[in-house]
């Protein structure tokens, strides 16, 4: 651990995590403690396994048939890969926003209501839709068109809808897998602002290609790179300001100064 973290402030923690696709080790020996109500960015060159690690946090890798892990991921101290743990329950508590906006081909309203409904939400659905859309800073733009197809929204709006959709399930952690890579700079900025607001209530982990974004929007940054055997590994983890101004590792410095990747 390279940062001084309060043990009680850790919400999810990867312990000596290695991830394999078949016999290929994609990520090795990652130790990463994510702090509550902070935005943690994971950066690094392509192929370094950052998305793989992110997807391990809510067991989305389960859908890759050959994928399996070594080590543990502790969520509030509970290993989410323990046999008695239900991956569906894990994903309810740890939501995800994907690289390309992927709203359901349904109405805006239904996009938000569906997740809440299948998770047994019994309260006032209209209220929930309004609240989550407001939280995702989308309400004002869509409040008159809630019955309209979500596919009619712009890319940036779609991505905020996907965030709202994730919020409606009331997760504790939101994983974002390069959420802005398909968006224009203005839409990107809106998402970054939104992340900042959301971090009051949620813990956010964001994988990004874009170093400026990590520098602007995150509290903590983990830098990943690839080893000679093509396995991803975590090089350095710390306060974002420290990583970008005083990196401790030569490889981090090379990367952020543009000498690599």
């Amino acid at each position: 651990m390279t940062t001084q973290t309060n043990e009680n402030n850790i919400i999810i923690q990867a312990n000596d995590l290695s991830i394999y696709y078949g016999s290929f080790r994609a990520v090795k020996n990652v130790n990463l403690g994510i702090q509550r109500n902070k935005i943690t960015a994971i950066i690094g060159p392509s192929g370094c396994g950052k998305s793989t690690v992110l997807r391990a946090f809510n067991r989305m890798n389960d859908f890759v048939q050959s994928a399996h892990n070594d080590g543990k991921i502790l969520f509030h101290g509970q290993d989410i890969y323990a046999p008695e743990v239900d991956p569906v329950q894990v994903r309810q508590m740890i939501g995800m926003v994907f690289q390309k906006p992927n709203p359901f081909p349904k109405s805006i309203y239904e996009n938000i209501a569906w997740g809440a409904r299948i998770n047994g939400y019994k309260g006032n659905m209209d209220e929930l839709v309004e609240n989550t859309l407001q939280a995702a800073a989308l309400w004002d733009e869509v409040k008159d068109n809630l019955k309209k197809s979500a596919l009619a929204l712009s890319g940036g709006q779609q991505q905020r809808l996907c965030i709202a959709r994730a919020l409606a399930v009331k997760p504790e952690i939101i994983l974002m897998d390069e959420p802005c890579s398909a968006l224009d700079p203005i839409a990107t900025l809106k998402i970054e602002d939104l992340m900042r607001e959301l971090s009051v209530k949620y813990s956010i982990i964001i994988v990004t290609h874009n170093m400026q974004q990590a520098a602007r929007a995150s509290d903590l940054t983990a830098f990943f790179t690839m080893d000679e055997d093509r396995a991803g590994l975590m090089v350095e983890y710390g306060e974002t300001s420290q990583i970008f101004t005083r990196p401790k590792d030569k490889r981090t410095e090379d990367y952020i100064t543009g000498r690599f990747g």
């Binding site: 239900d86 508590m93 504790e172």
Partner: peptide
């Protein structure tokens, strides 16, 4: 206090995640 109201305490997390 600043924690989200629906965040669970460490004690009941394993119950919530239990396989259904």
């Amino acid at each position: 206090i600043t924690q989200n109201i629906n965040q669970s305490s460490a004690q009941n997390i394993s119950t919530r995640l239990r396989r259904q």
